[in-house]
Nucleic acid binder design. Structure first.
Length: 953
RNA sequence: GCCCGGAUGGUGGAAUUGGUAGACACGACGGACUUAAAAUCCGUUGGCCCGAACGGGCCGUGCGGGUUCAAGUCCCGCUCCGGGUACCA
């Protein structure tokens, strides 16, 4: 074929390029083949070691995927493919966390059933995911909103409802065992995790006002169904309790703390009040210590482990009692991590909500106290925390007696003491605690000195090496030594008891929403009954809003009373219910008889590698650990940590572009000229900008208000935009969508490029400028196998030593880097390999066939094509991972950099087999050494074999 | 405030156990091809200095010290940036 005209020349270039690396045809071909052959179906098998790689499953939002989403998926897919080629039996599933708020809000606005929009979003996600060539076994897909899935979420809830936590055996046990115990001995002689408040309330209601936490077998047997149910709620792992929530009457729902801003709802700006509501709760606190301890056994990042440790917030210390003067028998219970500083305690501070406050407040202080309480109640917990931190508080007029000195201690209330932590009361030691010190200063309270050499006017001393004084028996001791003695001594004299406290609180498990799992609960005579044996399907409702009377949306359902009790539970479960166990369902996704067959979970075991964002540190990752431990306790699975190793990918940031509008005009100034004018910076859609230069016509067409825009251009006659790296977001017009890039460069290029951007864990800017380099690499790879006309170059000759060395060097580097999960450096190792092989004109099958296997995890489509061209057996997906041969790597000479006093002066080439002695002799006899030394005698000659020579002196 | 990260060319980043800092890319600049442009290919590209050139020198991994034959890497003291987060008793 001959081309003569310019147009024909252009066409020739175009066609040649298309033939050269026709990624569209290649990718379409292999996508179809993989689907037809069910290439990625995983089965249990005993001849191979299993490897379970998992992504955090996505919530299918209406916006579709942007380039940030696939980052983690590509990384896990690379490992899944690598492990498969290494001979592992890989489980690599994907699914959807498909219950959630956005679909519900959309439903409220449009009336469309959330199931419909969810289904639509899922198919969009699936389309986008399929384009990227992931090796997911889609036959195992799970969706949390599928009744076949959520019936097992409901079933696990049922098990949590039916179990409590026995501290003697340190595991969950059936509540029926506890009932048996109650029938025989009441609640004495057992140590099950208990909600003290819930128990006290139930006791007072059913056993009389004198109830102090203990009941006999007789008491128990005398209780009616309601009474028994109420008492058991204090022990169940899933239980009903009154808990304080942010309630928004206008929206008819509970809001999370971060949905409340300044006492108003984030959406709509309606007033929010703090209100006690009956809610389903999860007794995760029973597992606090186990959740803390087994962090040691898992390979997660230090930062995320630290987040979990802080969240659990274990602190050890003692519980102390202070008797209240003029209130016979009334004591205030206090938790302190520093009972060694007891001698320095000069006043008590209670949370404003502390139940004793109204009782002990004196008549003279009552008005002031109540005013302070009202003020506190009107502020959300978040505001209390975010306040200006100036000390506020109010004296109750009452005094407590110091347990050692007997001195009176004024009792104050202040909002820096939280009702929900510890006992809601603290003993203030102003000399040893900065907040107490500030409080004492602000209100002129006593600051007893208890540390040697401490000036109490300058602030608190929190150093544990400080030496105590004015502290009786502990005088002269450093605090760290006095602390255990104080706990021991105070306990022996009955003034205190050792105590471990956790910051972790039980989790609220109810939502007043529609699009979530219904509870398998109905009420009979107000007693909750578990419904077993089948799914409780989400009923149809006429609107996705609360009822007129403020009941959750499910109360609108007609004829839904499937169990013929008085009524169903109208709350639904929170988003984290389904995501707490989904990794188990993948192992046995279609089982109609169990959440997951024990043999299957034994076979696949823990997730070996879990990849996802770090933003779930205290939510999903804590709850799924909790549920896994619970299921382990019930012997339903054989491991108690779900995710053996986890990597958290960093956020991908967008590169935004800006135009500069002259104030009050429709004239836009190029970046270089912007300072000469008064300008306003505006985001401009990045699709209108190429290499920072604005497409002027495109800009005018972008929005009507810019149709008659004028431009002040730079000296090249172009309009240069400004840029900034920030979070990827629709409103910043900097969203990059993977579909466009797949269209332009192909999935293999996108996969390689996302990995090439930098270390996976790191937040990094998305900048497509570099993508052409990666695309060029794949073209170059392709050119090793065939010429510009698409004809094969592969032959069966003997490869040169350089070619073999390049190949084996690449195999070694790629293998080692994949083993240490260094995804980005693998790409550059492959580039180097391809560059060197191109240089060496290597077209031998014995080089190119392993090369195809080597690139397959990153660029599976082109790898399949090239593997096929080489005549490889079957799919490259199962191509054995190439091994490097150290002999092929050996160079005949070693080049030593020669340093003089640490500065490199020249290179010395020596035979590879030279001993350090030979090398030293060679370097010392070198002319250049003599020249550097200028007659001096070196003090020392250091030869690091294979690395470097340093001559000192 | 506390906790966890991080800081390396114009840019993204590499340097795995202390052993040639800047791999691999992008961008930029110069050149080839082309009527031209695009594409492609080749070359240069941390800064400063000496030299006509071959070549050579000095400085350089946020800042200030230190350890070492040798420090981006280890130690001490800071600065700045990112993320998380508790008035947690």
């Amino acid at each position: 074929m001959h081309f003569h005209t310019p147009l024909q020349g252009y066409l020739r270039g175009h066609i040649a390029r298309a033939m050269e690396y026709d990624f569209k045809a290649i990718e379409a071909k292999w996508r179809a083949r993989w689907t037809a052959d069910a290439t990625y179906t995983a089965e249990e098998r005993d001849d191979k070691t299993k490897y379970y790689v998992l992504d955090m499953f996505p919530y299918p939002s209406g916006a579709g995927l942007h380039v940030g989403h696939p980052l983690g998926y590509i990384a896990s897919d690379v490992i899944a493919r690598y492990k498969r080629q290494c001979g592992f039996n890989v489980l690599h599933p994907q699914g959807y966390d498909s219950f959630g708020l956005p679909a519900e809000q959309y439903a409220i606005q449009t009336g469309q059933h959330p199931a419909v929009t969810t289904e639509r979003n899922i198919s969009r996600y699936r389309q986008q995911l399929d384009l990227l060539g992931f090796s997911y076994d889609w036959s195992r897909e799970v969706r949390t909103s599928d009744p076949e899935y959520y019936r097992w979420t409901q079933w696990i809830f049922g098990r949590l409802f039916e179990h409590g936590y026995n501290r003697f055996s340190d595991k969950a046990e059936p509540i029926s065992a506890l009932i048996l115990h109650f029938e025989n001995q009441g609640n004495a002689g057992q140590d099950w995790a208990v909600g003290e408040d819930t128990l006290a309330e139930a006791g007072h209601r059913h056993l009389g006002p004198d109830f102090i936490g203990e009941f006999t077998a007789e008491d128990w047997n005398g209780l009616d169904a309601q009474g028994k149910s109420d008492v058991l709620m204090a022990y169940r792992l899933a239980y009903l309790a009154d808990s304080e929530v942010n309630w928004c009457p206008a929206l008819g729902t509970v809001l999370a703390n971060d949905e409340v801003i300044g006492g108003l709802s984030e959406r709509g700006g309606h007033p929010v009040v703090r209100k006690k509501m009956r809610q389903w709760m999860m007794r995760i606190t029973a597992y606090a210590d186990r959740l803390l301890e087994s962090l040691e056994d898992i390979d997660w990042s230090d930062s995320i482990k630290e987040v979990q440790r802080n969240w659990i917030g274990r602190s050890t210390g003692a519980q102390l009692w202070f008797s209240v003067e003029r209130h016979e028998g009334q004591t205030i219970e206090v938790f302190s991590t520093r009972p060694d500083t007891l001698h320095g305690a000069s006043f008590l501070v209670l949370a404003p909500e502390h139940p004793l406050v109204s009782e002990i407040t004196t008549a003279g202080q009552r008005d002031a106290v109540e005013a302070y309480q009202t003020e506190t109640a009107s502020r959300s917990e978040r505001e209390r925390m975010a306040g200006d931190r100036g000390a506020t508080g109010c004296f109750t007029g009452a005094h407590a007696k110091h347990p050692l000195s007997g001195k009176p201690m004024p009792i104050w209330i202040a909002d820096y003491v939280l009702a929900g932590y510890g006992t809601g009361a603290v003993m203030a030691v102003p000399a040893g605690d900065q907040r107490d010190w500030e409080f004492a200063k602000a209100f002129g309270l006593d600051i007893p000195a208890i540390f040697e050499g401490h000036n109490t006017d300058e602030g608190a001393l929190t150093d544990k090496d400080a030496v105590l004084c004015n502290s009786g028996d502990w005088n002269g001791m450093p605090c760290h030594a006095a602390l255990p003695l104080s706990i021991d001594g105070l306990s022996k004299s009955g003034l205190a008891t050792p105590k471990v406290n956790h910051r972790l609180r039980d989790a609220v498990f109810s939502r007043q929403r529609y699009w979530g799992e219904p509870f398998p609960i109905c009420y009979v005579d107000n007693v909750p009954q578990l419904i077993e044996g089948h799914a409780i399907l989400l009923p149809e409702v006429d609107a996705y809003l609360p009822t007129e009377t403020g009941e959750p949306p499910l109360a609108r359902a007609e004829n839904w009373n499937v169990n013929h009790g008085d009524r169903m539970e109208y709350n639904t479960m929170p988003g984290w219910a389904g995501s707490s166990w989904y990794f188990l369902r993948y192992m046995d996704p279609h089982n109609p008889d169990a959440f997951c067959d024990r043999a299957k979970s034994d076979h696949w075991g823990q997730v070996d590698l879990y990849i996802g964002g770090a933003e779930h540190g205290t939510g999903h990752l804590l709850y799924s650990r909790f549920w896994t431990k619970f299921l382990f306790d019930l012997d339903l699975i054989g491991f108690e940590e779900p995710f053996a190793k986890m990597v958290n990918q960093g956020m991908i940031l967008g590169r935004s572009s800006f135009v500069y509008r002259q104030e009050g005009s429709n004239t836009f100034v190029s970046f270089e000229e912007r300072k000469a004018h008064r300008t306003q910076r505006l985001h401009v859609d990045i699709s209108l900008v190429k290499n920072d230069m604005l497409d002027l016509d495109g800009f005018r067409a972008w929005r009507p208000e810019f149709a008659d825009a004028e431009f002040i251009l730079n000296e090249n006659g172009e309009y240069r935009c400004g840029s900034e790296v920030e979070k990827m977001s629709k409103s910043k017009f900097n969203v990059e969508n993977p579909d466009d890039l797949v269209e332009r460069y192909g999935a293999d290029t996108l996969r390689c490029y996302e990995m090439f951007l930098g270390p996976l864990e790191q937040a990094k800017p998305w900048d497509t400028q570099g993508i052409s380099g990666v695309h060029g690499f794949l073209r170059k790879l392709n050119r090793l196998y065939r010429n510009a006309d698409g004809e094969t170059l592969i032959h069966d000759g003997e490869p040169s030593a350089e070619a073999e060395r390049a190949l084996h060097k690449a195999i070694k580097k790629v293998t080692e880097d994949l083993e240490r999960l260094s995804w980005n450096t693998v790409v550059s190792a492959l580039m180097i390999g391809v560059n060197e092989l191109t240089e060496a004109k290597a077209h031998e099958r014995s080089v190119l066939q392993p090369l195809a296997a080597l690139v397959a995890p990153y660029a599976p489509h082109i790898a399949e094509e090239l593997w096929e061209m080489c005549g490889g057996n079957g799919s490259v997906v199962d191509a054995e991972w190439p091994q490097w041969n150290p002999e092929k790597l050996v160079e005949s000479e070693v080049n030593y950099p020669v340093q003089f006093n640490g500065k490199v002066r020249f290179q010395l080439s020596t035979p590879a087999d030279a001993s350090p002695k030979d090398v030293e002799a060679a370097v010392m006899s070198d002319d250049r050494t003599a020249q550097q030394l200028q007659g001096r005698t070196p003090k020392k000659v250091i030869v690091v074999p294979g690395r470097i020579i340093n001559i000192v002196g």
